[in-house]
């Protein structure tokens, strides 16, 4: 496995847009070539070499590991649209880390700003600290957010995470968020995502959820009035077949949405489990 190390020279005051930092862009290039890749500070175009000390050796995309050192809290869009390889960021990171990512893995050993993993289409994003708002969300005006892949956040995610996420069991697309705790409007307009929260969640979880599973192992201040209690369960089966055991109260919803699939199954007379919106909260 080949490795490239990027070390920030100085602290950056204005946001630096560095969507060129991906294994796709670095693959097969010499250190000189990588230094000449463009980055943007305000309206000025610069190069990676202007802001980073670059060392190591490049190689095949999927075999390439990029390690970023120094305070990257103002560096935006690292790993945008990457399709393979690995990025490790040993610091806090700016907005849009791993947005539109299709494959590979990004690890942030610190906190991430807003829009981490926005519209993720595959691959894995791991954040060891907290993440900002709109984790795995759809960008403004899009009706389809995260469609596949997994985001793991140890700490808290901000508001409106997984906005408009869209999964599909038949085509084996399971957009998943696993996080420590979450802000308000978690999984809003959910269309089939799986969200597992180890801790507490703020108000309005699962608002406008059409399909999907939200599992909350901690507490919520209150549940939206349009969710209906079904009963207690001991085991939850996720879309991808995995199972979670524990004592949970099952709710169906959101029942305020026009297109709601929490319909009564004509054969069994029970609320359909095949396509539905579900919220599970630890009993």
């Amino acid at each position: 496995m080949s490795e490239i190390k990027l070390k920030l020279k100085n602290k950056i005051n204005l946001p630096l847009e560095a969507e060129s930092i991906t294994p796709d862009n670095f693959a097969g290039k010499t250190i000189e070539d990588i230094k000449n890749l463009p980055v943007y500070l305000g309206k000025e175009q610069g190069t990676i070499g202007d802001y980073f000390i670059v060392s190591g050796k490049s190689g095949e995309k999927n075999e390439l590991k990029i390690i970023i050192e120094g305070d990257a809290s103002n560096v935006k869009r690292i790993g945008e649209k990457m399709t393979g390889g690995e990025i490790i960021i040993n610091s806090d990171v700016g907005m849009h880390v791993g947005n539109h990512m299709r494959g590979g893995k990004i690890t942030v050993n610190g906190n991430a700003d807003d829009w981490a993993g926005a519209m993720l289409k595959g691959g894995e994003l791991e954040i060891t600290g907290d993440a900002g708002n709109y984790v795995g969300a759809a960008y403004r005006g899009y009706w389809q957010g995260m469609t596949n892949g997994i985001i793991k956040v140890k700490g808290k995610v901000g508001v409106e995470s997984m906005l408009w996420a869209k999964g599909s069991a038949p085509s084996k697309k399971f957009p998943t968020l696993i996080c420590g705790s979450a802000g308000s409007f978690l999984g809003i307009h959910n269309h089939g995502a799986t969200i597992i929260v180890e801790g507490d969640v703020d108000r309005c979880a699962g608002a406008d959820q059409v399909r999907g599973i939200i599992v909350i192992k901690g507490k919520v201040p209150k549940i939206l009035p349009s969710f209906k209690k079904i009963g207690e369960v001991k085991e939850i089966e996720l879309f991808n077949g995995d199972k979670i055991t524990g004592k949970f109260i099952e709710y169906s919803g959101d029942h305020s949405v026009t297109k709601n699939h929490s319909v009564v199954d004509k054969k069994t007379g029970e609320i359909s489990k095949s396509a539905n919106g579900r919220l599970y909260i630890a009993a």
Binding site: K222, L224, P225, S226, H255, S256, V257
Partner: peptide, 22 residues
């Protein structure tokens, strides 16, 4: 306001809600 809007939407759709107050 969000919870209230949410409840009105559900009631307009004819859903019986569990809550007594929103």
């Amino acid at each position: 306001d969000y919870e209230l809007l949410n409840a009105i939407r559900a009631v307009v759709r004819g859903v019986e809600l569990d809550a007594t107050e929103v």
